[in-house]
Design a protein around this nucleic acid. Sequence first.
DNA 1: TTTTGCTGTAATTCAGATGATTACATCAGA
DNA 2: TCTGATGTAATCATCTGAATTACAGCAAAA
Lengths: 146, 146
Amino acid sequence: MQISSRFTVALHIFTCVDTFKENYKVTSDFLAASINTNPVIIRKILAKLKKAGLIKVARGTGGITLTRDLSEISFFDVYQAIEPLEGGDLFRFHEAPNPDCPVGRNIHALLDDKLKAIQTAMEDELKKYTLADLRTGMREILETEK
Amino acid sequence: MQISSRFTVALHIFTCVDTFKENYKVTSDFLAASINTNPVIIRKILAKLKKAGLIKVARGTGGITLTRDLSEISFFDVYQAIEPLEGGDLFRFHEAPNPDCPVGRNIHALLDDKLKAIQTAMEDELKKYTLADLRTGMREILETEK
DNA sequence: TTTTGCTGTAATTCAGATGATTACATCAGA
DNA sequence: TCTGATGTAATCATCTGAATTACAGCAAAA
């Protein structure tokens, strides 16, 4: 199964905030227009980012501010804020292997550490990128676009 | 979103086949009992593994045989056989970013390579494990169980 | 103080995926 | 020809993702 587009939407949001915060009032409607989705979807994602302590949202007046430096927020932070994995496990395990079968009662002992290693490899790569990379990357792109 | 339990079920199947093929007739009913699910679920997964060329299934009489050596089938091979990712992308992207927005029309250029790198990190780790690891691992566990 | 524009959130809807199950046609060997 | 398998269609319940409507609450400007 694919990872929900909420993650790329969140990265899109951060890029917009950084790119436009000087010249525009970045509201959920503004973001919804750039991302081409519904403002409520945006607000729900903003609520998760807020709950994770990555941003603050100004009630009433509108506007989004980060709580840390761009370089202090990694893709992994965003991913964790957005995707609440059940038990923190990327791989879903079949619920009830048969304990009366030698393989069934030991399949977790056999697989758990390997699945975890695979998940960790992905998460470690997620930690390599930060929102600062989004800023510099987008600025480069916009520069060459002129 | 979590990765479907079909993947761990498939690994469970391979472990059972290797562990029991000498002393039992390993049918979809047999496997369903060990995994504690429905035989039809098993057959559907077997069909995918067969289509991917990893196994052969004896019609009528029953029985599963691998087409290659255990060490020649990696977790990644199994994963690819089981999980048909749309376009091969682990991360789903929001469908229609606004091309009239500077960020919207460049968000793919900004993110695609990074998302791909993260996916590749996970896939490379999947390639590190093979069914041979399952054999040796399970044999060790069963040895200490005595 | 009232208006305006925004956020927060509940409720609904629709589509698609997952997993379980029944039913049955088909096949191969005893 | 029986028996025990696989192959597969069809159905169902449940869950999740994404979109949408509706409205209460808040803060600042008029």
